[in-house]
């Protein structure tokens, strides 16, 4: 059975139909990419699935459970993680703390125990810090562990978001343009990182403009245009689809 199923999903902002009747499903353990020209509705689709927006109509199912209309924190409890196209890093915190926040749901969040500095809580927190440091190593940010987030370069922050998402120990992770704004060398590093994430067993859903990276990583690709599904299939299928070629060249048939 598919891990994530999307059926007839639509959202309207006033008169604008940002996503229209989109359906697809994603199998466990694959890398699934969503591509399309600017304004095709890719980020909106992410926002719908991760609960940031509520769909106007349609269904989303995770492991068979209907999840449309649930809030982002409820979806986080069900193992859904994401990163953002426009960085959403907590600049008021250190890098490692940003990663630790990712483990929020796995911790005892009791206010009174925290205020009293109970030893059990402290020990868990120390373990978590070690785990977060480990994750920063995994994404290649060893140099920044104790850095303040607002002192880090853009490329490092992109990867910090991935580390934070991984700290949730998610089943499925949505990466919204992880290579946007990066130089070619950094792009290759992120490409390798996404591969490593997928190899660790996490289902990856990717929005990305770098076609080399998309073709290199994806098991399946969904093409959106003007909020509608244009095509879906393997890299080769999508690349040879005449509608897709037309959309990307701007000549609408």
């Amino acid at each position: 059975m598919a891990l994530l199923e999307v059926k007839d999903l639509s959202i309207h902002f006033g008169g604008v139909k940002a996503v229209q009747n989109v359906s697809f499903s994603i199998d466990q353990g694959i890398v699934y990419s969503v591509i399309g020209p600017n304004g095709a509705g890719k980020t909106t689709l992410f926002n719908l699935i991760t609960g940031v927006y509520k769909p106007t109509t349609g269904e989303i199912r995770l492991d068979g459970e209907a999840i449309h209309g649930k809030s982002p924190d409820q979806l986080a409890e069900r193992g859904m993680a994401r990163t953002f196209q426009n960085l959403q890093i907590c600049m008021n915190m250190s890098a490692v703390e940003n990663v630790m926040v990712g483990a929020h749901l796995r911790l005892d969040r009791n206010l009174f125990k925290a205020a009293l500095r109970l030893p059990g809580l402290r020990r868990r927190d120390a373990e978590l810090r070690a785990e977060a440091t480990q994750l920063m190593h995994f994404v290649g940010l060893d140099a920044y562990v104790n850095e303040r987030a607002d002192a880090m370069p853009y490329g490092a922050l992109k990867r910090l978001e991935i580390a934070r998402a991984l700290a949730m120990k998610p089943r499925i992770i949505f990466l919204d343009e992880p290579a946007a704004g990066l130089n070619p060398r950094e792009t290759i590093e992120v490409d390798h990182l996404v591969r490593k994430v997928a190899d660790s067993g996490i289902t990856v859903v990717l929005v990305e403009h770098d076609m080399k990276m998309v073709m290199n990583l994806s098991d399946r690709i969904l093409v959106l245009d003007y909020g509608k599904k244009l095509a879906e299939g393997s890299g080769a299928e999508v690349r040879n689809n005449p509608d897709v070629i037309a959309a990307y060249l701007g000549a609408h048939a």
Binding site: T50, G51, V52, S71, P72, D73, L75, A76, E77, M80, A81, R82, F84, Q88, I89, C90, V101, G102, H104, L105, E161, R164, A165, A167, M168
Partner: peptide, 8 residues
């Protein structure tokens, strides 16, 4: 929004 998607 970032804190929401990690479950806060």
């Amino acid at each position: 929004v970032a804190s929401q998607v990690v479950g806060v």
